[in-house]
Computed example of a mutant assay.
Amino acid sequence: MLGLYLNYFIHGFGIIILAQNMTALSNSWHTSIKIVSFVISGIGIGRLFAYLLTGALADLLNRKLLIYLGMAAYFIFAVGMVTTKNIAVAYAMAILAGVANSALDAGTYPTLVEVSGGNGYGTVLIKGAMSAGEFVLPLLVAWLADYQLWFGWSFMVMAGLLVVNVLNLLPITFAQRIQTSAAADSIAASRSMTGKKVVQTILLLAYGYSSMALMIWFTQWITIFAQRVFHYSNLAAHGLLSLYSIGSIVGVFVLFYLLKIGTNEFILLIGLNLLALLSLVVLIRAGGEVWLANAMSLIFGFSAASGVMQTGLTVFMKLYPAHRGLVTGAFYFFGSIASFTVPLISGSLSVHSVGTAFSANLLVAGSGFLLMLVLALISHSREVN
């Protein structure tokens, strides 16, 4: 299954590659950073259209096929984005990246949950692979800029890795999807939307939005925020995102271990969301204290990007074990709404100031904490009853 995780290392590139090249892309397209931010929102549009479809298909078709479709779409995105000067074509490429993301998720998450007997600790490692990609890419972008090399090489590296992984996955045969009996499906359907479970479903869908928005908001604006508000150098500003990624990678292994030994998922979700909120508050107030900004970026990555979104999805899958693919699609459908709306909202706020655009993420962090707190209380009440 190493190839599945390598796909998410590449996806780590895809998540932030446009944001990390915003200035270079605006120069290449002869447009403003605001327009580049709007192009980035196309990723959310692609996810929005694709997630429910790919989620349903994952419960019906061969999941390896979906994964290959996702890889092909990402390859076209990587090559197409740096070979076009047309904003409309660039927006279409961003939409295609969103489709790629949804196809990979729909094929990969249910597969990993099923091979681990219904447990979700394997999906947490997906976040580790993504974080590794998010750590490497800013360093690559900064290195290219420092040596005045073409920014498009970062996209070409992404495309090359996809080609390598296609060859890696060719001989691998995926296990058939575990089928449930008709009786089990009927029982699951009858219980699926009754009483407090309706509220739990709504809260988890909302968390699909907030947990994705929290990470996207941070990764899109932290570099420019550090440069324009804290007046950091190019390397120091990009370094904050790399530290965020290091924190995420460390958090993934900690969370993986805690879930493996049976730690309560709700305790982890509440605690990590609270820590993310507090670290973001300190970071925004860090000012010129580079060491403090570095430390808070590390802690924010540890808490907000350690796999809490994937853990939330695991909780959701446990509510509907007969429809893991569809649940994955629905959960990330709301995440895709975040991918679409965050660049639009933050881009509009940036007209006032970059500081305002970045600081608004505090509202998202607070909402994620409250959602998990309420969900835990309702779930505990449901178990008691």
Rank of each mutant, 00 (worst) to 15 (best):
A295T: 14
F9C: 08
M22V: 13
A73C: 12
P321Y: 12
L272M: 12
E134G: 14
L259C: 12
L69M: 12
I261K: 13
F38C: 03
L319Q: 13
L235G: 11
A286M: 04
A237E: 06
M81Q: 06
F266A: 10
E265R: 15
A106D: 08
G12W: 01
F151T: 02
G98N: 02
H323P: 01
N86E: 09
Q200I: 09
A376R: 10
I261G: 09
M372C: 11
G122M: 14
F316Q: 01
L112K: 00
R191K: 13
T201F: 13
R47W: 09
L169G: 00
L112N: 01
V36L: 12
F256N: 15
A304E: 01
I126M: 15
N7D: 12
V290D: 06
F9M: 06
S102T: 10
Y5L: 10
V115L: 06
R177V: 03
G301A: 04
F155T: 05
M1Y: 02
A58D: 06
L240S: 01
Y74C: 09
L313C: 08
T180E: 11
I87E: 07
A103I: 02
G98E: 00
I17V: 13
S336Y: 10
A188C: 04
L6Q: 07
S346F: 03
V364H: 05
A72P: 03
R324F: 04
A90G: 15
N361V: 07
L326V: 15
V141K: 00
H352V: 12
L255T: 12
I216V: 13
I16S: 14
I35F: 03
S242G: 09
L140F: 07
V115K: 03
S131W: 05
P171I: 00
N273H: 07
S102Q: 09
S306H: 05
Y209H: 05
L53A: 12
F230W: 14
K34H: 15
M1W: 02
N264C: 06
S306C: 11
L169Q: 13
G80N: 04
N234D: 14
N264R: 10
I337L: 15
A305V: 01
S381K: 15
I17K: 01
F369W: 09
L275Y: 00
G44E: 09
L170P: 02
L255D: 08
